[in-house]
Design a binder for these strands. Structure first.
Lengths: 338, 338
DNA sequence: CCCGATATGCCAAACGATTTGCACTTGATG
DNA sequence: CATCAAGTGCAAATCGTTTGGCATATCGGG
């Protein structure tokens, strides 16, 4: 029957049907030049009727931009990142932009950088995490709009950056534990190279100077393993401050296996306030994930405009810090006095 | 200083520098015509040196495809969906395709459908959830490559679909609870219109025919509210089978508040086996989220090829069912005999 | 009723890569 | 030496939209 595949109408055809020129149709769509209401209405009617959508590739090819930005995420299954993504989407939508999200692939970590090079997107928000990419990001940012979120890159003073106030977050944890009478703490930190983790540790130690620090990934497994180590070594401590909720979860599991009562015998805190924190009643620091996404997106939009207007770029951009908040739940309590 | 913005090289320039024609450069890239190894190497060297990446818009404009597919998700912050996304990405990468992810926006739910209409992507995997979009999806699928995942759409027999074996999952729950001696159950179902939820309920009731069914969203809040209702009405039951982990979580919270011991006084099960399930020790049914993503992506790739070769399309496509698995943890136990 | 101001529409040239038909140069093969 | 095949170049058309230059219609004021 219809061996003829239904073809999407082109702007030419829309113009012909509406009885105007392509120029006019284009201007109805873009609003770049005034069009009489009557004409506009007629054109719009035809567009509706034929469900016409302009081919984005043509537009992009012609004027370099396509109204699409990308968010690059290490791993979407980490709920914290997913929330940042939500924020980016919200802000982008408000600005009339589309957002696409890409996880950085293990096999081809640079693939997503090409998205901006090849012009599929106008700019990217990069959730830093993978240090191996840092240099490339910095290099890329010289020629294309890039914004860093969640992590402060060393030697990247010229890239707009937004992170949580990790230092203050650490202090909040420290104050809370100290106020409960704790003095000897085990701090489970993230990878050393990450500024966010280091800042948190610094904050905690301001209030608990004697804290012992162990490092590991942000995962639950790492938390489990490190607590296992610490217990094995017979180190004495009455509380654990983890650098992420996931680590805290792993720690909790290990403690449960060891028959340690939380918070009776041991207090424990996380960082992030993801969904699991609420589920298990974990005391933690809430990072404003959604807000972070929103701000990052806004910064990117500015950046795109700046680079396009060929304006002078400032020599350095301050890092924007977002406020954090202590959420007290059921895993922290007064130090036990046997 | 450098008021001159650095411009990305065009294929023309690459060709000139390498001392060949554009034709040759293009063929080196596409492999569409044999090129001598020596020439290819020289061209590739230049491409490397200048970090050349072809403008994707031009390619897409010329030959209609761009090697990019989209995954449309209701809400990425639901960890189950994030895992499906991971699977899609994995399969796409294996096929040399790029993946972009978009959450369906509340304000502009149809925005992402335009991604395929406007040709930004070659096809989409749609995680169904939002019934209001169902019709549009069905309509869209007539002209563009679309695959449905996770949910079976009514009247959509011509759209390739992959879901978990929800019926069997329900049976597993039912068997497990029945084997523990439970007879009177409260089933917390999802929205009625969703086939996945209905299937789960049917499965449970095969083994526990007397089960009482309440419906609500898949969220924790809904679980909390429904259990609250059930307790208030003084309905007698010894176990709760929720249609999602989140609902189960809400239910658990309400039970804790009511001082009901789990699993001593009440057993409870979820569905999904997301990260939280492990964290709180919830007995649940594991859906193969990642596998689902992989299969959906593979189906989409087939579909894209089929539609492109203008082949006859089969009148209907069978729904592909993925196996599920019961994961027993700490929230289920033998019925209490007072 | 005429004239300039303003609003609106049309034409055609880009944008950058792909692809096709044809011609040409090699080096190898019979 | 004739022939063939593979490798390569050239020029041109194409994809669909945008946009600057130019032509025309419409309107108010004098």
């Amino acid at each position: 029957m219809d061996a003829q595949r239904k073809r999407r109408p082109t702007m030419q055809q829309i113009a012909r049907i509406a009885g105007v020129s392509v120029t006019t149709v284009s201007h109805v769509l873009s609003g770049n030049r005034p069009v009489s209401p009557r004409t506009a209405e007629r054109v719009n009617a035809v567009i509706q009727r034929y469900d016409y959508v302009p081919v984005s590739a043509a537009r992009r090819l012609k004027n370099g931009r396509g109204g699409l930005i990308a968010l690059v995420v290490p791993d979407l299954t980490i709920s914290y990142f997913a929330h940042v993504a939500k924020g980016v989407e919200r802000a982008a939508e408000a600005a009339g932009l589309g957002v696409i999200i890409c996880s950085v692939s293990v096999n081809a970590p640079r693939r997503h950088l090409d998205l901006v090079r090849e012009g599929t997107v106008d700019g990217i928000v990069h959730l830093a995490y993978n240090q191996q990419l840092d240099r490339e990001i910095v290099a890329l940012s010289a020629d294309y709009p890039v914004v860093i979120a969640d992590e402060e890159l060393p030697d990247a003073t010229r890239i707009p950056t937004v992170t949580a106030d990790n230092l203050h977050g650490g202090r909040l944890i420290g104050e809370h534990l100290a106020a409960l009478g704790h003095r000897r703490a085990l701090v489970i930190a993230g990878p050393e190279a990450l500024a966010s983790s280091s800042q948190r540790v610094v904050g905690v130690r301001e209030l608990l100077p004697k804290a012992l620090v162990l490092r590991g990934e942000f995962s639950a497994d790492a938390g489990y393993r490190l607590v296992d180590e610490a217990l094995g070594s017979g180190l004495g401590f009455t509380c654990i401050a983890a650098a992420s909720d996931d680590q805290a979860l792993g720690a909790l599991r290990r403690l449960r296996e060891a028959g340690v009562d939380v918070p009776g015998d041991m207090s424990i805190t996380g960082f992030d306030d993801g969904a699991v924190a609420d589920a298990v009643g974990l005391t933690t620091v809430r990072q404003p994930a959604i807000d972070m996404g929103v701000r990052a997106c806004e910064l990117l939009i500015e950046r795109i405009q700046d680079m396009n207007s060929a304006a002078e770029r400032p020599a350095s951009t301050p890092v924007e810090l977002l406020p954090v908040e202590l959420i007290v739940r059921r895993t922290t309590g007064p130090v036990s006095t046997p």
